[in-house]
Each structure stands twice: as C-alpha cells, then as structure tokens.
C-alpha cells in the first residue's frame, strides 16, 4: 500500500498545475453549465416554462423521424453502398447516380422536394390508379425524406467499411465454396458493419439535428413547434433558446455515449 501511495504521489508530482488543468474537459463543463442555467430558467421563469411546454410535444416526432429515418437510411445506404462497388454495371451506375444526385443538392432543398414533390406524386399516382386513399402521416413523410438524403451519406460509409476488409477474407470465404452473396453476408459485412458503427453513430447525431429541417414540411417536430409558438407569442428569445438547449442536451448525451462505446471497442481489441 505504501509503495502504491508513493507511486501515486510521484505520478501526481510529474504533472504541473497547468498540465492538470489542461486535461480537464472545460468545454464539457461549460456546456453543462449552459444546460443547467436553462433548466433553472425553465423552472423559475414563467415565460421560459411556457415556451418549453409549447415546444416539448415536438420531441416525440423528432425522435420518431430520427429513429425511423435512421433505420430506413441504413437499409438504403447498405444497398446503395454495395451497389457502388458491385461488378454489375447497372447496379453500380444506379447507386452512383443516386449518391451523386443527393450530394449535389442542398439538404434543405432535398427535404422540400421529397416531401412536396416526390412523396405526394407517388401517393397520388397510387391513389388514382388503384382507387386508394393513402395519406402518409407527417412523421413518416419526414422520416422518408431524411432517409432518402442520409441513405446516400451512409452508402459511402458502408462502401468504405466493406473496402476496409482485407481481400483475403473474401478469398478465404470463396475458397471454401461460399457464393459471393454468402461471403458478403457471413464474412465481410459482419466485420464491415462493426467497423462503421462509430461513423453510423455520428450520422445518427447529425440526423437528429437535421430533423429540424423537417419543419419546412410543417412536420410538428421540435423546431416546428418552436416556430409555431414564437410566431403566436412573439417570445422569440425564450422559444429559440429553449429549442437550442434541447438539441444541445440530446446531442451531448449521444456523443458522450458514442465516445464511451468507442473507448470500449478499442479496449476490446
């Protein structure tokens, strides 16, 4: 014990005061302070409380659109990513066209186009030709719009993930008689997906933030709720500050979780 204590002291002594100060995550303390101040405001200040009460119902749609969009985008991204490196020229060109198209247009414009042009055209077409009455709920409209956009980003992540797996893995799988599809499914993809999980996590956080763009489609998520509230109450400061801190809190928690997960992965290796 005494020896350990000695070593501990020597270890401490090696760090000067300024060194130790530089290892403290001041940025995190600062952001947490901002969040605490906002929480106190909401508790103590009636105007902030009203803004908060008006905005928070949008949380549900924000979360639904993000999670639903994320799942759908992952599936689109996986197929588009595989298409991008496919030997089949048709798949490869389709996937590349999709990805380049999405990357060449601002996200806000894409959200408007898929929400106002793409989805209504498809549903109207279906309704008219089959005499149906499909109306897609706003949350799903939002989720689809996000998925179409993020599918292209994730395609590049999946492509990079698959390409990061050494060629020998595919060869070994083929050498025992697996088809290309089996080798992908049982050997390459499980490894590739594990490698890209942190990148996908980052995209989840980015999607959470970009779900605010769905307000242009009148999807009543957090940002739309804030717009509606401030528009009728003229309490712009309170409404938008509450909104800002809500997003900040969620992204902070998620990115800390992601960092913890990545550290755990690295330890596992």
């Amino acid at each position: 014990m005494a020896i350990e204590f000695e070593q501990g002291r020597i270890g401490d002594g090696e760090l000067s005061l300024s060194d130790r100060a530089s290892t403290i995550p001041w940025w995190l303390i600062g952001i947490i302070l901002i969040i605490i101040v906002m929480v106190l405001q909401i508790i103590n200040n009636v105007e902030y409380r009203r803004a908060y009460d008006a905005i928070i119902p949008g949380l549900q749609l924000t979360i639904y659109a993000t999670i639903g969009g994320f799942v759908a985008a992952s599936i689109i991204g996986l197929f588009a990513g595989l298409g991008r490196i496919s030997k089949n020229a048709l798949f490869r060109n389709l996937a590349t066209a999709y990805i380049e198209f999405i990357r060449g247009v601002p996200m806000l414009v894409l959200i408007i186009v898929s929400g106002v042009v793409l989805i209504p055209t498809v549903t109207d077409g279906l309704n008219q030709s089959f005499g149906l009455d499909i109306r897609i709920p706003e949350a799903i409209r939002g989720g689809i719009a996000l998925a179409v956009v993020y599918g292209a980003f994730m395609a590049e992540i999946f492509r990079a993930g698959v390409e990061s797996i050494p060629k020998g893995q595919m060869e070994a799988a083929r050498s025992v008689g697996m088809t290309h599809g089996q080798a992908m499914r049982y050997i390459v993809l499980p490894q590739a997906i594990r490698n890209v999980l942190p990148a996908l996590g980052n995209d989840f956080i980015a999607m959470l933030k970009d779900s605010s763009l769905l307000s242009v489609l009148a999807v009543r998520e957090l940002t739309q709720q804030a717009k509606l509230y401030t528009g009728s109450s003229f309490r712009y400061n309170e409404g938008y500050l509450v909104l800002t801190v809500l997003y900040l809190t969620m992204t902070l928690v998620l990115s800390l979780l992601l960092q913890w997960y990545q550290r755990r992965l690295r330890k596992g290796e």
Partner: peptide, 28 residues
C-alpha cells in the same frame, strides 16, 4: 478444393470453432 493462405485469412469475428464450422453448415 481446400486452400491455405500465406496470411491465414481466418475470419476474425468468429471463434476458432465457428471458423471451422461455418462453411460446413452454410455450404455443405
């Protein structure tokens, strides 16, 4: 036709046993 590679090319996400069973169950 079995093949043994210079770099082994074992499947790192599977246990040793799974490395030896996967082709048996999925292919054979």
């Amino acid at each position: 036709v079995g093949m043994v590679f210079q770099q082994f090319n074992l499947f790192p996400h599977l246990t040793v046993l799974e490395n030896v069973t996967i082709a048996q169950t999925k292919v054979r």
